[in-house]
Design a protein around this nucleic acid. Structure first.
Lengths: 145, 145
DNA sequence: ACCAGTTGCTTGCGGTAGCAACGATTGTAG
DNA sequence: CTACAATCGTTGCTACCGCAAGCAACTGGT
């Protein structure tokens, strides 16, 4: 329970610190994640619904988040040829250049604020612990016994 | 970095799962924390500003959160006799009964979703890891080198 | 006693998120 | 082929939170 209190008091400030480092690029954590996922996708584009799932965002939430990125010229919407219901979120050249600039800095930020502070054993424990929690949450959702 | 991705994908759903369990009492995670802190305080009351700091909330954020709890009859505002600028957030009888009912359930929820899934070594690693991160964030804030 | 600076809480505003509802499109069963 | 269900994205609504501004009250120096 002590560990739990520590968790509560750490998660928020940690996210805030990372977001502060990202601000120099005009990005929020959420924006960064959109660009990161798109940059790793085939043709640097994804269906809105798939992207929403990856980002753990509701459809409406993603619509509005993308609005911001589109007006910033980092992403554009393109209708899918295969399914006219579908909108593809497509990374623009500007978006690609920005994420390529910001990514190393962000990775470094994660290292400074988290990874480099911990022993390899602690990192491994964190990884396996979160894997277990995530697996448990998935099971619970699929089988609401 | 893999551990980092796992962290990102776990923290949000975990908070959501706990919030879902708390919903049966009509409480959010934030509401619960207010009541929990107040129930542990002397005379079950705290100064707004101290409470805001504990909750990592801005003053305005706490004002609105308390609005909700006050209209729900769980907390009331009382002017401080020592300093007339200060408002005390005071747990009501209803608030005390609710937190006393909800707390065991919430603790159990944390166990089910987190603690019971992990080995003692993993729990210890989580605790020390977050302690280090939190200490580092504090240092950084006090000495923005 | 007075005035400047600080502290504490509230309010207006903007940004972000989820849910419910909707229109458009696709898939499927009869 | 036609009806019906499911999927996809957007929009209206509501709620939450932080920042900046404002007002009240306290503090310390003159």
């Amino acid at each position: 329970m002590q560990a739990w209190r520590g968790y509560i008091d750490t998660v928020g400030p940690l996210a805030a610190a990372l977001e502060a480092d990202l601000a120099q690029f005009g990005l929020t954590n959420g924006d960064y994640e959109v660009l990161a996922w798109l940059s790793e996708a085939d043709d640097e584009q994804m269906r809105m619904c798939d992207l929403a799932e990856r980002l753990r965002l509701s459809p409406s939430g993603l619509t509005r988040r993308l609005d911001g990125l589109v007006s910033g010229g980092l992403v554009e919407r393109a209708p899918s040829v295969a399914d006219r219901r579908v909108m593809m979120a497509q990374l623009t050249r500007r978006g690609r250049r920005l994420i390529e600039t910001a990514a190393p800095d962000h990775v470094d930020s994660v290292r400074r604020h988290l990874i480099d502070l911990l022993t390899p054993a602690e990192i491994a424990a964190l990884g396996s612990a979160f894997d277990k929690v995530r697996a448990h949450l998935r099971d619970e959702q699929n089988d609401p016994s």
